[in-house]
Design a protein around this nucleic acid. Sequence first.
DNA 1: ATTCTCACA
DNA 2: TGTGAGGA
Length: 125
Amino acid sequence: MRIGELARRTGVSERMLRYYEQAGLLQPERKESGYRDYGAAQIQAAQRIRMLSAAGLKIETIRILLPCIMDNLPRFEPCREVRAALRYEVDKLDEKLHNLEESRKIVAGFLNDVEGVGCANRRSR
DNA sequence: ATTCTCACA
DNA sequence: TGTGAGGA
């Protein structure tokens, strides 16, 4: 099947399908026309990539996890790099969570400072 | 009608 | 990640 059909059947945009190819996640054949030719197995792969991408994982991590997925469920085979990759992602998320908490505190503090106080600027509320 | 590559107000 | 150009 060509890129358009795969895109329709997986919900992955043609744009991203091409991007995933250059990233090495998908390797469709090429017709004489130059058009990409995806096999039935590619639709499964695309759906899985979509799932992992929705989890916010970067291409590099998806590349490691993709061949270790058993079902289309969040279930992985305990491949060597899988554990490390997931560990890394979770740690990174914890870090982002922490930064957001700090940011929230600061902004909430600003809000608290202005609440109840009149604004000196003209025509502003 | 579709897809391809490349580039970015 | 989207979108449009210019070509096949």
